[in-house]
């Protein structure tokens, strides 16, 4: 319940003060360059990595990237840069 209250408060702050949502609400920020690159900030770790599929842990749920010939160019505790041919990006909410 307390978490929900926190979430509500934050949402209110974002709405009224016009703050960037990714910072306030720990949401992933995803930047894609065509199908070639995908750059994801605010992830919480690598769950699964094959050359056709990458599954990342987020604060809420998971992010699934599908495509072909994936290579992780760089990975840092909260950032990841993926290269390959990206076909789809989807969220998985339990």
């Amino acid at each position: 319940m307390a978490q929900k209250w926190g979430q509500r408060f934050r949402r209110l702050l974002v709405k009224t003060m016009d703050l960037p949502q990714d910072v306030m609400m720990d949401l992933p920020r995803i930047t894609m360059i065509g199908q070639l690159h995908i750059y994801i900030e605010n992830h919480r770790g690598l769950l699964n990595f094959t050359d056709t599929e990458v599954r990342l842990l987020l604060k809420n749920g998971q992010l699934l990237v599908k495509g072909r010939s994936f290579v992780i160019k760089t990975i840092l505790p909260e950032e990841i840069m993926l290269e390959g041919k990206i076909d789809q990006v989807s969220y998985i909410n339990e």
Binding site: G45, L46, L47, F49, T50, V71, I72, K73, I75, P77
Partner: peptide, 24 residues
């Protein structure tokens, strides 16, 4: 646990790059 190995490494601040899955 190869993915876990990567997670562990980056948590320790080791820079890792060009990660590829060559075979399952």
């Amino acid at each position: 646990g190869t993915e876990r190995l990567i997670n562990e490494l980056i948590r320790q601040g080791v820079s890792v790059w060009d990660i590829r899955r060559t075979a399952p």
